[in-house]
Design a protein around this nucleic acid. Structure first.
Length: 451
RNA sequence: CGGGGCGUAGCGCAGCCUGGUAGCGCGUCUGUUUUGGAUACAGAAGGUCGUGAGUUCGAAUCUCGCCGCCCCGACCA
């Protein structure tokens, strides 16, 4: 993409309403624009990252055997009356009435809808296990939205629902989700720690939240520092392997890690003193096993091999897709701006033309731009007539992990400068070598969508 | 929902107390200049002062209503 033809409305000054780094940077980098309290438009740069997050979530969900679909944002109140949540959910539920006077709601979650789909089409144990998921906009009418997309009212969320014949089978689904979430967050360059949590209005008593440590987090957390040494890494997982999934869950949840809601001081004191940590964190996902709560309320049963009709065991699992933007920036920025992980970056590299209008420099930039694109990379070429400082400042702020600087001095010597955003280290090398370096660096799985 | 605050040019703000022709910085546009970290000079465009009513000869300024937004708390993915 050529910057002169793109839409990147960066702000030089910080909007007054932004209190935390991620909100400030998302506004300044032209990623979002507030449309109302807790509601945001996603401008092109922000939309790219949002879609990259979605892509990773989709890939990891499907790797775990979960099936994508899409349910609507607006739901009939009738289903919620059936489950009992229409009255139980409270004022966070945005209630709407259509022209015929029918009660509707903008979904904050989809247990009722998915259960309704299930009961209409699934009748036999032979069709289980089944896990369906979607990525859809939700709305929760928060009393006080804040922190930009971290605590918006409208938010994009992946929510998935598993259906199993027994508690034992459903707990495997639970474990499988925990494993797949570990992989998902790690691919985004995040350490998300599973912590024992409260289930809230979803119900059930088996639940973990995934939390990313950050000073600006809204949750207080208590944990054994040994847990932060754990990484999922490149290990192969067979998601159908009950023993393996359970072992991974045990590995990542056996150490003390709880939010302040479930904190147990006595248990915490069992952690060696030097490893006790009290911190703040951002919740980026949660998994639940809630048994037959919705199945019983809504009559979702299947017939067993013995001919009995039994309510299906369910769980639900969410990843805050739009919120992740905020969490990732909180964890990846410096005083100059955002630093994207390579897996999510909106563009793989930025090309800075130091002397726009100089024939040789322009030609070198064009050649490099074409070479990167030919290798499947998606560079952002700053071809504006701005001065070098302005171009550097923009690139630093929007956080592309790599920058290639092309100026007349380097062109005369046959080199360009490749700079790593995170470390600031740079190296002069011939343009084709820089293109090869970047192509090697971005593995095939990290080639993001173009648009 | 309790408490506090804000709404004036694209962004950040001053002006309001004490009513009298709407300002500053940045950005934008034009020209010149400059060219490795938001360059310099000159010129220009851009505002129903959130909105409605009231007081007044006269309202950004005073009064009341409404709308929107932000902050602290409680709540919350």
């Amino acid at each position: 993409m050529r910057l002169s033809r793109y839409f990147l409305p960066v702000l030089r000054e910080t909007p007054a309403e932004a209190q935390i780094a991620s909100h400030r940077l998302m506004l300044r980098a032209g990623m979002i624009k507030q449309a109302g309290s807790g509601i945001y438009s996603w401008l092109p740069l922000g939309y790219r990252v949002l879609r990259n997050i979605e892509r990773i979530v989709h890939e990891e969900q499907q790797r775990a055997g979960h099936i994508p679909m899409l349910m609507p944002t607006l739901q009939s109140a009738d289903l919620w009356r059936e489950s009992g949540r229409y009255d139980a959910y409270g004022k966070e539920l945005l209630r709407i009435r259509d022209r015929h006077g029918r009660d509707m709601l903008y979904g904050p979650t989809n247990e009722e809808l998915i259960t309704d789909i299930f009961r209409a089409h699934v009748f036999s144990y032979k069709d289980l296990p089944l896990t369906l998921y979607h990525i859809q906009w939700k709305f929760r009418d928060e009393i006080r939205p804040r922190f930009g997309v971290m605590r918006g009212r409208e938010f994009l969320m992946k929510d998935g629902y598993n259906f199993d014949i027994s508690k034992e089978a459903a707990l495997h689904s639970y474990n499988r989700h925990l494993v797949s979430y570990l992989r998902t967050y790690e691919r985004m360059g995040l350490q998300a720690i599973p912590m024992r949590a409260e289930s809230g209005p979803i119900g059930g008593d088996t639940t973990h939240e995934f939390l990313v440590l950050a000073e600006t987090g809204e949750s207080g957390v208590f944990y054994d520092s040994a847990i932060t040494d754990l990484t999922f890494g490149d290990r192969a997982v067979d998601y159908d392997n009950v023993t393996q999934c359970k072992a991974i869950l045990d590995e990542f949840t056996s150490r003390y890690a709880r939010t302040d809601e479930t904190h147990d001081e006595q248990a915490f004191l069992q952690v060696p003193e030097g490893r006790r940590r009290v911190a703040r964190a951002i919740e980026v996902g949660q998994i639940f096993y809630f048994g037959t709560k919705y199945a019983r309320a809504m009559g979702a049963t299947v017939q067993t091999a013995d001919g009995d009709n039994v309510p299906v065991h369910m769980g639900s699992h969410g990843i805050g897709v739009s919120r992740l933007l905020g969490a990732i920036i909180e964890a990846n920025h410096d005083d100059r701006g955002i630093i994207w992980p390579e897996s999510l970056t909106p563009f793989h590299a930025g090309i800075v033309n130091l002397r726009q209008g100089d024939d040789e420099t322009d030609a070198a930039c064009e050649a490099l731009y074409a070479a990167l694109r030919a290798k499947g990379l998606d560079p952002l070429y700053d071809d504006r007539g701005e001065r070098a400082g302005a171009k550097f400042a923009t690139m630093d702020m929007i956080g592309l992990p790599w920058r290639i600087t092309v100026g007349p001095r380097g062109v005369a010597r046959g080199v360009v400068e490749l700079t790593h955003r995170r470390t600031g280290k740079s190296e002069d090398l011939p343009a084709p070598a820089a293109a090869r370096r970047l192509a090697d660096l971005y593995r095939p799985g990290q080639l993001n969508e173009r648009d």
